[in-house]
Nucleic acid binder design. Structure first.
Lengths: 195, 195, 195, 195
DNA sequence: AATGAATGAGTTTTCATTCAT
DNA sequence: AATGAATGAAAACTCATTCAT
């Protein structure tokens, strides 16, 4: 089997195992066995446990960011809803990936950097949205309020996504609608607060 | 040293260590050394590593819930703001405790149950708030929307609290104000959505 | 079994195993099994494989140096012969120790430092002997010649000792006599060379 | 690249790596990478790690012996000095080779045999020199004294050579002179001892 | 003639946990 | 009531070696 193919299939398994057990409890032995390869292959391809994890996070986080950015480049009016849709689509399609990204957000060492960067980019986007909102005459929101509220909005989405993972009977469209509503309301409220 | 006193000081140390390194990387050796007792003491008092952790979570989560419940029993008009204040006070006073509770929220085995229960009670409270909101004539919010939005609101608070932990220069009052604004806006938006 | 006793018996076994197989091929598993303890004991007492080795070398090298120094503090006339006797006694009594000290002399990483220090002290002594020899009127030997010849003399002794280890039928007294003769001759020759 | 050429360049690399790290810590991976060939090539050419090592030692030890033998076949009067010169020339030109030969002298398994043979031949030569010395009327030296002293003389040379490797500022001629002086003095002394 | 892909067996090290005193 | 001594089990990682192409 050629290397790139193997690499992808190993990453898939690694994501499943890490999503299931967390980084610390995910053993290389288990990943190797489930991937149908020997442990030395994991090390030949990824160098270390951390290397394997980082490769997975880069692949998965990279795709999430790419999709959000694309959705964000659409027409102003529908942008928010499209970005939210895209986010929920990603969660739906990559349950493991999302679980890993989200779980390791709260872990300090030694991998937080990678994941934190992905999230930071998203928070920054939301913050820009908050700060730009008032440009048409309304009051304007500035740091640190814009930062805090952006964090809150992103956190709301994460939490909602996790809840949704356990409720497959709920339609994505509904979830997106709630989240979009909350976001719009939060933006409005934040901008009116100082006034 | 009488047992209850020693137990409390051990729990304090355990919280610090677990907040610092996470449950898996927190070793009993380290906890024993920092607490100034021998390892067999830890086992005599708490039975196992999991037992020690559960004791810590019960104590810490219990206090969080107690404080929120008390704040929630106050007058209707200021209730939301008081609860939020109480929550942020707790985070401020128990950085380790909050970090542990929050971090382990996303961990599956073997301790999630305990922590999840604490959070579930909070989410349920918020949900009741959402569902009761309309009782005075407005449209009413029902599950699963009320559940999802409650999750989102709680998630927003968690995220905001974590962000705030890294920004000690921001006043608690401001954070509380933003969060209260977001929550009220979200409730209003959610109730108007179906109409 | 109290710790100091255990430590000594572990060190004895470690010396035997390392003398037998060399540092790299000596496995902690094997040392633990032969010492009748579990591997974690080795780590509890010595920290690491290197730590165990260093402890052994310190103990053994320390004793060698102590004995040589004592013998060296005797009356001038018989000093050389006494030191040589003491050295050969040590080799006879600590075959493992000598083998380890000698073998690891030629190893670069990561342990050479310790052993090299022991040897360096001995070489320095011989060098001082060489340089002081001429003080009664003969020509005097100086660096780098004194250094080189000291190295040669020490090397001759090491080599002789190793050869002797494989020839238990040869009396220690004879070996000592040969070595003393060689050393005296070498000193004389070295001092006359420049003249 | 024709096989013999490649073989030689592989051996050169192997020598460098083994001199640097020792046999056990020298990995086939590293040798293959530095030699610019794939690992299966190493096995096709040399059969095993041990095979590669043996090939290196045979080549290097063979050259050392050849040079010493040639120098030894010269006129009686200058023989000793020529042999010593040749030895030091070899060390100077083949630092890696000498390091490997010397280092592995003290290693027991699994390669000592090869290296030990090379050294044994040299010791035997010196011994013959010692035993023949007295043929012109002086007292004669016999085993085991001749063996022991020969070992000592060879060991002195090895030790001197190693010391010299770290002192490139010292002229070869000086080193050779010291060593020749020591050797002649040792021979004389050994022959006079019994008398 | 040459190599990318692959592994069985072994290494050092750590950890939660218990026993004898 | 308290601990020094001790361990079974499992972790991450490495290496010499081979096969299929």
């Amino acid at each position: 089997m050629p290397r790139p193919v193997r690499e992808r299939s190993i990453l898939d398994v690694a994501g499943r195992v890490v999503a299931d057990a967390g980084y610390d409890r995910a053993s290389m032995d288990r990943i190797a066995k489930l991937a149908g390869v020997s442990k030395p292959m994991l090390y030949a391809y990824f160098g270390s446990k951390e290397g394997l994890y980082v490769a997975y996070v880069k692949r998965t986080g990279g795709e999430l960011v790419r999709r959000l950015v694309e959705a964000d480049s659409s027409d102003q009016g529908v942008r928010l809803r499209l970005v939210i849709d895209e986010f929920l689509c990603f969660v739906e399609q990559h349950r493991d990936g999302w679980t890993v990204l989200y779980r390791e957000l709260t872990t300090r060492r030694p991998l937080a950097e990678q994941v934190a960067q992905v999230r930071a980019r998203i928070v920054a986007d939301v913050r820009r949205m908050l700060e730009g909102y008032g440009s048409d005459g309304f009051s304007e929101l500035r740091a640190p309020a814009s930062e805090g509220v952006a964090e809150a909005i992103v956190g709301a989405g994460e939490s909602l996504a996790n809840w949704w993972l356990g409720r497959p009977d709920v339609a994505r469209d509904d979830v997106a609608e709630w989240y979009a509503g909350l976001t719009r309301a939060a933006i409005t409220a934040a901008n009116q607060a100082p006034g």
